[in-house]
Design a protein around this nucleic acid. Sequence first.
DNA 1: CTGTTAGCGCGTTCAG
DNA 2: CTGAACGCGCTAACAG
Lengths: 360, 360
Amino acid sequence: MQQQVPFGNAGPVRKKAATLADVARLAGVVAMTASRAINRSGYASEEVRERVLKAAKELNYRPNLMARYLKGQSRRAVGIMLPDIANPFSAELVDGIKEVLDKAGYTAFIALAGAGIEQERAGLESFVDHRVGGLLVATRGTLMGDEVLKEVARHGIPIVTVGRPVKSATVDCVSANHWQGAFDVVTHLISLGHKRIGFIGISAEDAHTLRRHHGYKAALEKAGLKAPAEYTVGPAMAPAFATQEDGYEGMMRLAGLKKRPTAVFARNDFAAIGALHAALTLGLKVPGEMAIAGFDDIPLGAYTTPPLTTVMQSTKEQGKMAAEMLLGRMEGRLKGARKLKTVECGLVVRGSTVGRGNRE
Amino acid sequence: MQQQVPFGNAGPVRKKAATLADVARLAGVVAMTASRAINRSGYASEEVRERVLKAAKELNYRPNLMARYLKGQSRRAVGIMLPDIANPFSAELVDGIKEVLDKAGYTAFIALAGAGIEQERAGLESFVDHRVGGLLVATRGTLMGDEVLKEVARHGIPIVTVGRPVKSATVDCVSANHWQGAFDVVTHLISLGHKRIGFIGISAEDAHTLRRHHGYKAALEKAGLKAPAEYTVGPAMAPAFATQEDGYEGMMRLAGLKKRPTAVFARNDFAAIGALHAALTLGLKVPGEMAIAGFDDIPLGAYTTPPLTTVMQSTKEQGKMAAEMLLGRMEGRLKGARKLKTVECGLVVRGSTVGRGNRE
DNA sequence: CTGTTAGCGCGTTCAG
DNA sequence: CTGAACGCGCTAACAG
């Protein structure tokens, strides 16, 4: 029974949405009765409920959440603040989060921090304004960002961050052990006999990257190897995450050194793929003359030629854990001091460090 | 001046948020005056405004949007419904949308359709419930999906779809000319002398793919070439979009034919990259023995070896256009019958169809 | 310029 | 089982 809709020829004018009173009138009862029938709260005779439900459907009735929230009802929506959307990390994370949230009957809204801290603040405030019941924040940690988060926390909304430890007693955190992942993959390179190992994609802005770089240095140190400053390269102004371009440039720089590295660890898989392309373009054999490893285990990494050795950080798992912690806070199951959870990373060895590579 | 926050040791208990009345009381005025001071509507003496603003800051006051909306205020939030988040298409689209929305001072919320139509419906209804002022829908077109959209349209919320023509008089649409893009790239392959050209990633579910496949067939037909059924391969149950795996499988199938194609057009770049890896794994020279083209122009496509020939569909541009149309509807600038806009696609020629490739 | 009144749509509370 | 009154936080429309 398709109804006439007042749009397209009427511009933004719209018939006012049906209210509970309208439904009640049509069903021949009073608003309160309709409310009870619809929400199954309190009693209502079967017969009345049917009439009400029919009327509701006919009027295309949707309860006005604003009015509900106004009375301080439970808020079954969660806000997710992401750094950007182009990042496979975001995709997997949301995957894990949604799995938990969907099951629990919550709706998730996503906002993007995008370029700057101001956008992030605007998005977070918007979440607060729209009365989400909890916040999952996966943006990158900067000191400025922390201030914003603390401000938001003052509104009393439970917050769980992912991959971003916040120095605030009211915020729970889930993150991967980037240090250990980097340590493991560099140790893997060392165990293959490499002694000159470069790092592509450094950036002082990004907490993850710094921890990965520390892991890189620690592994070298433990093996008694050196990491000359010139072996660490990165774009001057680091963006949200290193890109193919950065990796390409980085490899070009490293390969141009008089004593160039024989292996390279790139901050993430995008950079690694860019580096791989650069190396092949220069005619270097991979991994024969240049071994390359990345970080993140993006799906495409298994389909480069040669496939990419990388570090898996079980992002989906982190998403699930974070969502569960948040729900716990929201529903009062989880109490007490802030929780900090860390997930270990796993090494994924493929052809870019071991084997024939794509040239004899 | 960091305040004590009641969380962490108190579970979900929270101090009630400050209300306008609280602010007014602290400033020694009445609520209405505070409202005027904060919203710059009506008059308020400079002195009073300062006092009110100070009080507001002190109490960490945020106007209760629910209460505002309840009065039927303008809704400066927009909902974006995406098919999934792992898709570079989504990223670029949101990029374009945000550019317009940010400038106009609107906030964007994103929801994901994910697996099924039910999630999509839930997300859309949640948007309606949260009283977003407009909806941008970029999920894939299926008949079931259309029904849901029509239902939502009945609420009188302006809707613009991207890449998905909807048979409803109340929904505006923006999309790329997939047919033409496919036609052009296949024509490019033909112009290189290829006579046996395969298609990887067919799926009856996906409208875009079908249009790309039609373009592929049209190009062959126009050149007087044949497209045997066995040259078109795809996973039986097609997911949201074809993946590296699908491309890999597809190429394996095509390469195994007694009279195998000399060129392949993959439904998207992910499939193309999978196909590329398969071809190289089989020892085929690309493009010498097997030319490969994709669709979408994802960033990584320029960094495969050889780099990928593909079709650019200016997704960001589509996002901008869609957002502008939506704002036009929301603000009453755009009136009248539904608008349908189509953006042309552009051919991007790289090494996977032309040149030496990555082997001599 | 500032204060008062009323009502948005709903659910809670208390009477029928 | 059903109805009537009240108030959530805010602002439009009137006074003062």
